[in-house]
Design a protein around this nucleic acid. Structure first.
Lengths: 125, 125
DNA sequence: AGAGCCACTATCTTCTGGGAACCTACTGTA
DNA sequence: TACAGTAGGTTCCCAGAAGATAGTGGCTCT
């Protein structure tokens, strides 16, 4: 579900958002960043809940975008490993600033949600 | 399309990603940040392509999360204005680092995509 | 022989985003 | 008076993406 092209004119970071923050992309990148090179099932286990189909789709997309590298070892039995690429590692500061924002401000979001949900709304129809 | 809860354990920024980077949220916040207080149709026009239904949905969500404030003026005719909140404004550094990453690295993504698409793949089945 | 692992693929079903049209209340034009 | 237009939505429907479930083929372990 890519962002529509129309949004790009108004918002220059739309392409990056599609790239890094589409569904499951961030958790996958995070796992590879934190735990290094991983096999398919290892990623799947760390992200309990992801189905193999979706994991394959996302890994292919991340590989195509150059954020992840896939290495196939023609051994017996064969082995496939995924690793975050150099380009993927350049996202470090992005993740860092997001973590910081989360630590500093996320409670305010939760407060706002609770306030919104419990407000008697005047129903300004 | 919220990220599943299972991902949060493995990736602490999943909640923020849902908050800020769900479809259309970023362009809306961007518009409000750049152009200040706006009426419904003004936002719609700047984001040419968004339908009123989706814009309503996203604005409600952003309002609930405290990132946007909605003000209803009971005039004749009534008027509704949306503005980015103080909490929303704290996302500035997040957007800045994303813009910077985009400017610095996005061409590498495009190169990677082209390379992937034109490679003869050995089909390692 | 039977069970299990690995890296997927195939086939459903469900869910959500998007498109088009409609709605109410008001204003402006003729 | 009729007609058109604006603002801020809502309703209905469909297509495409995500998710659940199951299967596959080769290998190994007991």
């Amino acid at each position: 579900m890519p962002h529509p092209v129309e949004a790009v004119g108004a918002c220059p970071i739309s392409p990056v958002v599609d790239l890094v923050f589409s569904r499951w992309s961030t958790p996958i990148l995070w796992v590879l960043k934190e735990h290094g090179r991983q096999r398919f099932v290892q990623i799947q286990r760390r992200l309990s809940g992801i189905t193999p189909k979706v994991l394959t789709q996302r890994l292919r997309q991340l590989e195509r975008d150059g954020l992840v590298t896939r290495s196939y070892h023609a051994e017996i039995p064969p082995r496939v490993e995924y690793e975050i690429s150099d380009l993927g590692r350049t996202l470090g500061p992005v993740f860092a600033v997001l973590t910081e924002w989360s630590d500093t401000h996320f409670t305010r979001v939760e407060t706002a949600r609770h306030a919104y949900d419990t407000a008697d709304r005047p129903l300004p129809a």
